[in-house]
Design a protein around this nucleic acid. Sequence first.
DNA 1: CCCCAGATGCGTACAGTGTTCGCAACGAAG
DNA 2: CTTCGTTGCGAACACTGTACGCATCTGGGG
Lengths: 248, 248
Amino acid sequence: MAAKTNPIPSVWARQQPAPDQPALSRAAIVREAIAMLDAEGIEALSMRKLGARLNAGATSLYRHVATKDELMELAVDEVAAEIVVPSPDFARADPEADSPDWRAAATEAARSFRATALRHPWLSSVLGQAGLAYLGPNLMSFSERLAALFTAAGFPEPSRAIDTVLSYVIGMSTTEAAWLTTVARSGETEAAFIARLMPAAQQAAAGHDHLTDAYAEPPAADPAEIRETKFAYGLEVVLDGLSLRLPR
Amino acid sequence: MAAKTNPIPSVWARQQPAPDQPALSRAAIVREAIAMLDAEGIEALSMRKLGARLNAGATSLYRHVATKDELMELAVDEVAAEIVVPSPDFARADPEADSPDWRAAATEAARSFRATALRHPWLSSVLGQAGLAYLGPNLMSFSERLAALFTAAGFPEPSRAIDTVLSYVIGMSTTEAAWLTTVARSGETEAAFIARLMPAAQQAAAGHDHLTDAYAEPPAADPAEIRETKFAYGLEVVLDGLSLRLPR
DNA sequence: CCCCAGATGCGTACAGTGTTCGCAACGAAG
DNA sequence: CTTCGTTGCGAACACTGTACGCATCTGGGG
């Protein structure tokens, strides 16, 4: 029986070792997953589509990743590496200032966090579901650098200060990211989306005096700029409150 | 042909108008959905299970609710009614104090928000995905009351103050809710879960000096109490920072 | 060189999901 | 009694995450 009913195993059908395509590996999978999440959002990521993008079957991924949740955890830790937290060297920059510029460092860390959260809006969804229970290496060194920063700043209870500023930053960033996701789904520019939303908002605000005032007219400035100054304002508030807790 | 192959349509098989069971209505659906979300978490809610709980078929729900996302939006607005924001009557309570106790009112609102978020942990997941784009009546009056409070407190830009404190409260509450969800999934008590997590945390912290200090020994006090004082601390910080922005 | 063991890819299958569609039963209106 | 709009629902579709078992490939002894 030379001819079988099964597909003929021909030498030519032999799959070459994927000459250019990157081999299937945990790192490649995570990298491609992040690319997909960034491009199409969190609900567009499925194991089958991800496999297809890697020229692989869906179930092949499970050789390198235990479960989809674990894959998301890996993705979170991967993008956590993008957050830059300045080293606590600010004292050396200006040796005569005995109250060094920890505020600039904290501000830089906060801005970097926000930037990464807006660059990867799916992060907000994952944070809302899984929180900070992840122990990936990048998240750990993120925490470590924050601890170093606020300790060097002189806070008697650095973890309290960290939790406070981090809560503010997370709250503002996730809210912003969720909003931007909604905007992106509409396919419009942010300003156009706001303009289209205004009537509904004004109607919903009917009977509420302060809200009707707030929604009286569309904002004049660039929405992105508005969001940035809003973030900066709240951050200054939090840092002001914290600086009251510094000894002296 | 008295007998057909189809099931015999007997008078006795006629379904009574569901004597005790509540009729299928949008309100009943939302109420039951919230009960399910609270009891079993967000990923346990499916239209089929929800229908079964209401003695109804899965697809019947779509007569009263356009889509599952809309159902979630309704659920969010429903629980938003639980958040109590004090009326700005604090001035009248003590007529001689010209700087009335807006802090107590804001603190009460913040605590109420947190309590609601912890009572319905699924709220965090939804907030991370949809943000504040919802315009339900309860959310609107929540915003209105906040605006009234901070306006009466004398803030020149009340919306800025609101955004700041709300961001902090949302950030801390969602983080906490996500943590509690993880704990609940483990089936253990919070303290037991922490104890079981400690080794992994310590190992992950290896090489990070500040973190190894922080994870040196398990916390002594009741975890729930720790979380509460942490929340209170950060809130004080934010309110301190805000009070610097008050005129005078 | 051969052979075999372990690692890797993947086709099939299962139990579920949200949602659409067309049909049946109903209460009220004419 | 007939008609009509509303409500419920069974079947079906296009997906999802993942377990299982078989094929193939790779590298290291004999």
